[in-house]
Structure formats: structure tokens, C-alpha cells
Simulated scan of single mutants.
Amino acid sequence: MQKLIACAAILTLAACAAPNTPGAPAVTPETVNSEPAAPLAAPTEKVVTITSAKPKITSAQLLGRDGDWLKSRLGEPAFVRSEKTANIWQYKNHVCVLNVFLYVEGDDAVPHVLHFDARNIKGDNTDRDRCLAMLQN
């Protein structure tokens, strides 16, 4: 991370440096326009709009929850597969895919999350909490 910051600083300084162009006239008091510069424009007010951010959820919070709770946190799934006692919901973005398995247990007719896994875009297992965080951005 420090190398990335140092590299960014060097590139910023290099962009600010005056170009070393042969034959370019030097800036001297004689070459600068003697007319006064135009006054600076009055600063404008910047309006910042605050959007309500989705709450960050972790894998520990996800287990045992029902589909309504899950939709309120992650939105509609990109893919749904329904079977008699289970539903599979898939959430995905350009970084990862989250497969959530909701099962009906006992007398409760509402499916709840009993298992989920996370995979990267290549299909390999990846960190579930990191994937959840990426899906909430």
C-alpha cells in the first residue's frame, strides 16, 4: 500500500512539473502580459446529497434469516431456483457470486438461510464476508 501511495505521489509531482521542451520560450517578466488578470470568480456553493447507505451485514448476521430480511439488505437476487424444501438465491457483481440456500425446517413454512457460499468470478471459493461487503457497495 505504501508503494502505491509513493507511486501516486511521484506521478502527481511529475504531472505538475513544467515540460522541458527545447525551444520553448522562457517565462520572464518581459514575456508575461502586463494587463491585470481577470478577477477570480466567486466560489460556488457545493451541494452534497447524502444517500442512505445499505447497512453492512456479515455472514454471522445472515444465517437463520428469512427471505424478506435478505431482500431488504441485498435487494432482489439475480437468480432464484425453487424446490420443495429449499430455495437457492444468487447475488452477483463483477467481483463475486453469493449463493444463498434457504431451507424450510420443521413446521415453519418460511424458508430461512441455513447455508451460503461465495465464489470469485472464476468460480473458486472466496471469503464470504468480503463478498457480502462487495455486494452492498
Rank of each mutant, 00 (worst) to 15 (best):
A8W: 04
N93I: 00
V32Q: 10
M1Q: 12
N87T: 14
C131N: 01
G75L: 05
P29R: 07
K84V: 15
N87I: 11
N33A: 15
E45K: 15
R73T: 04
T85N: 15
S59N: 10
D127L: 01
Q90P: 00
C131R: 00
E76C: 00
P77N: 07
P43A: 13
F79A: 13
A24E: 10
A41G: 11
A109E: 14
N87P: 11
H94M: 13
I121N: 09
E76Y: 09
V27R: 09
R73F: 06
L13N: 04
V97D: 02
A60D: 11
L74T: 03
R73G: 02
N137K: 14
Y103N: 09
A118R: 00
H115F: 08
L4F: 09
C131M: 01
L13P: 01
L132F: 02
L102D: 01
F101Y: 14
L135R: 07
P39L: 11
Y91E: 00
V113E: 04
P111V: 04
A6L: 15
G75E: 08
D117S: 09
I50M: 04
D129L: 01
R130P: 04
V104T: 11
L70T: 06
T49K: 14
L4K: 12
H115P: 00
T51M: 07
I10G: 07
P36L: 05
A42W: 05
A78I: 02
P39N: 11
A86C: 00
T51E: 13
L62Y: 06
N137Q: 14
C96S: 04
D68Q: 10
Y103Q: 10
S72W: 01
V100E: 03
L132D: 04
V32I: 14
A18F: 08
P22V: 08
P111Y: 00
T49N: 12
G106A: 05
S59P: 07
A42R: 12
E83M: 14
M1A: 12
L63E: 08
D107Y: 03
A109V: 11
T31A: 05
M1W: 12
D108W: 02
N20R: 13
D68R: 10
G75N: 06
V113A: 02
A86P: 01
P25L: 02
A86Q: 06
D124I: 04
G23N: 08
L62V: 06
A17K: 07
L135W: 07
L98R: 02
V27P: 05
H115T: 02
L114T: 09
A133G: 10
D108P: 00
Q2N: 15
H94Y: 14
L63I: 14
A9I: 15
Q2F: 10
G75V: 06
L98S: 05
P22Q: 06
V113F: 01
C16L: 15
V100G: 01
A26H: 07
R65I: 03
A78G: 13
F79I: 13
F101W: 11
G106N: 06
I57F: 11
I121S: 10
G23T: 05
R73A: 03
T49A: 11
E30S: 08
T49W: 09
A6Q: 14
V47F: 08
